[in-house]
Design a protein around this nucleic acid. Structure first.
Length: 620
DNA sequence: TTAGGGTTAG
């Protein structure tokens, strides 16, 4: 038996989010009559139904335990499947131990009880427990799984990318004739799609006698998730031609496709579609839209979408927080987080990932350290490996490399590539070759196929003038058949994405672009800007270095943008790697000289250049 | 059964 009394006593002292107050009131109106004289109460079913409603909507562990206590005192576990509901809520709230203990205690467990437990662990993407339960149910209890059992297990496989296990479940479903059930096939489409087997997903889809809206949605979603946005949109068009009306899941996938393609015009078109269909009040759609605008560089539109939301939930608050973080607005991110807490919305592990990241990107070391310290103590959010990555980044980037290293050594969980990656990044910024070399060795053994590790180490050697060591690392890369993708910059103009690589001469307007660039370089020199040739990581003469750096892809994109857009219009440029220090300084001055806001997005975040300054405060 | 927020390194 789980000890519930202390939790009951504590529950009354804890803050319960306001959105659950209505269900608590509903429960309380009955609970006031739940006493030792309960048997005199005439409508037991009403009490059970009120308890079930309260249990199913409860988001606080302590409150759930208090309700559990009331169940023990008042009704039978089997009454109206109240025991199953308690188990589900415990799983949902992350109390997996309590859920499994209670499940063991439940008398007369049937297929529904097992299915609801498996489904709960599937939502937590805990495939191990799902499989254990499936095995126990089948071979110890002799219960035959049905469609409702199989679907969440397949979904859990998709969630963690376990294709082989998923294939076994596919086999079981096939043998049991479950493939006639549309929902089972849909879950399999999702599994194969998410695991990168698009051919298998398409084959299942085409083999269906009738495709449901979810089948179409799955096809759109899996293609978009695999980075094949155009194909995803193609399925959307086919779906419309087949006379199927889209729903919110379709629209969310379309918004993700826009993000994938990075085309603002398309995003605006989908936004129009959302407004026409009256879908703007949908929280999932509004959140995806907010996130999309932020990723396209238009933070003001993200703020607008968030401001228009009615009762934003934790995901929406977190999306806005991540937008601030992405745009280097650390202080605003913190204010937003504090407001979220005051509004009674509970932060989760993703919220803290972004909050720590916001602190890291803005150099708010003390604030970040404090949130890291209290996130579990005050908010009950468990520390995950990604939180450690953010902290290592925060400490390392701000120059506390030893503290970052000590933190890794003290981790209660195994540090992964992300954690070591954050440290090597900090070593590069701080020019600590000794530690960088050690970290690189760890990364090489953890993932020998990730070319970034080799490139970072080689660049560290080059920046220190250790050309021989740099070339040795490059040779190792060659030996392991790893290639380096060239850095490129993109800019949208006239319904087209224009892409530039360093020294690019393939654009039809090349001559004009180079003339403009020459003019910009000259203007920069006139105001005293000296090229930072230390960012050229090749062993060549100073003059050649200057020539190379002046042809960097972001400079070409800036020159092109200035040529084709009207005065005063902001330039929005996307880079596939981080902007170099020289281009950063160049963009700052151009924003001042040409009176143009310039926004440059690298793989994850934005630099806003205005009037000679950058939003990152030169801290990146 | 599908869909919204995910950090860190070129």
């Amino acid at each position: 038996m789980i000890m519930l009394i202390p939790y009951m006593q504590r529950a009354s002292k804890l803050l319960i989010p306001h959105k659950f107050i209505s269900s608590i009131r509903l429960y309380n109106s009955f609970a006031s009559q739940l006493s030792p004289t309960f048997h005199a109460f005439s409508n037991v079913d009403s009490v059970v139904s009120a308890l079930i409603t309260a249990i199913s909507t409860c988001s606080s562990i302590s409150y759930c335990r208090a309700l559990h206590c009331r169940v023990i005192k008042s009704v039978n576990y089997n009454h109206g499947f109240i025991g199953d509901q308690l188990v589900s809520s415990y799983v949902e709230l992350g109390c997996t131990k309590d859920a499994l203990e209670l499940f063991d205690e439940l008398p007369d467990k049937d297929l529904v009880s097992w299915n609801s437990l498996i489904s709960g662990f599937s939502r937590r993407a805990d495939l191990g427990i799902c499989l254990g339960l499936l095995f126990k149910m089948r071979f110890e209890m002799g219960l035959k799984p049905n469609e409702v059992t199989v679907i969440p297990v397949v979904s859990a496989c998709a969630g963690v990318g376990e294709l082989d296990v998923g294939k076994c479940i596919h086999g079981i479903a096939l043998k049991s004739g479950m493939l006639l059930e549309v929902k089972v096939v849909n879950s399999l489409i999702n599994l194969y799609g998410k695991c990168g087997c698009l051919e298998a997903a398409c084959c299942l889809f085409e083999g269906m006698s009738v495709q449901s809206l979810v089948s179409w949605n799955s096809m759109v979603a899996v293609h978009v998730h695999m980075g094949l946005a155009e194909k995803g949109i193609g399925y959307f068009i086919m779906m419309r031609r087949a006379g199927i009306n889209s729903d919110q899941a379709t629209v969310v996938s379309l918004l993700l496709a826009c993000e994938n393609l990075g085309v603002r015009k398309l995003a605006e078109a989908v936004h129009g579609y959302i407004l026409n269909g009256g879908l703007d009040g949908n929280l999932a759609i509004a959140t995806a839209l907010l996130d999309l605008y932020a990723k396209l560089g238009i933070l003001s539109d993200s703020c607008k979408v968030f401001g228009e939301m009615i009762n934003p939930d934790a995901v929406a608050w977190t999306a806005m927080l991540s937008s601030y973080a992405m745009h280097g607005r650390g202080r605003e991110a913190i204010e937003h987080f504090e407001l979220m807490i005051r509004e009674g919305v509970l932060p989760d592990h993703v919220t803290f990932t972004h909050l720590l990241c916001a602190c890291s990107h803005s150099g708010l070391v003390e604030e970040g350290k404090n949130y890291f310290k209290i996130m579990h103590k005050v908010y009950g959010v468990e520390l995950r490996v990604e939180h450690y990555s953010c902290m290592v980044d925060l400490l390392g980037r701000s120059g506390h490399l030893n503290d970052a290293y000590k933190l890794i050594k003290s981790m209660p969980i195994e540090p992964n590539c992300g954690v070591w990656g954050a440290l090597i990044g900090a070593c590069r910024v701080r020019g600590n070759i000794e530690l960088g070399k050690e970290v690189a060795e760890r990364l090489f053994s953890l993932d020998p196929s990730d070319s970034r590790n080799y490139i970072t180490l080689s660049n560290m050697y080059s920046a220190a003038g250790q050309w021989r060591d740099a070339s040795k690392v490059r040779a190792l890369m060659k030996q392991r058949v790893l290639i380096r993708n060239p850095g490129c910059s993109y800019i949208e103009h006239g319904n087209k994405i224009h892409c530039f690589v360093m020294g690019d001469q393939s654009h039809p307007d090349t001559e004009r672009i180079y003339n403009k660039l020459e003019e910009l370089v000259r203007k920069n020199r006139e105001v005293g800007f000296a090229s930072k040739t230390e960012y050229v990581l090749q062993d060549v003469d100073e003059e050649v270095k200057e020539d190379l750096i002046n042809k960097h892809s972001e400079k070409l994109a800036i020159a092109f943008g200035l040529l084709v857009t009207n005065a005063g219009m902001p330039l929005i440029i996307t880079k596939n790697i981080r902007i170099c220090g020289d281009c950063h300084g160049f963009a700052k001055l151009i924003s001042l000289i040409e009176k143009r806001p310039i926004i440059i997005r690298d793989t994850k975040r934005f630099h806003h250049f205005t009037n000679g300054l950058c939003s990152c405060g030169d801290y990146w």
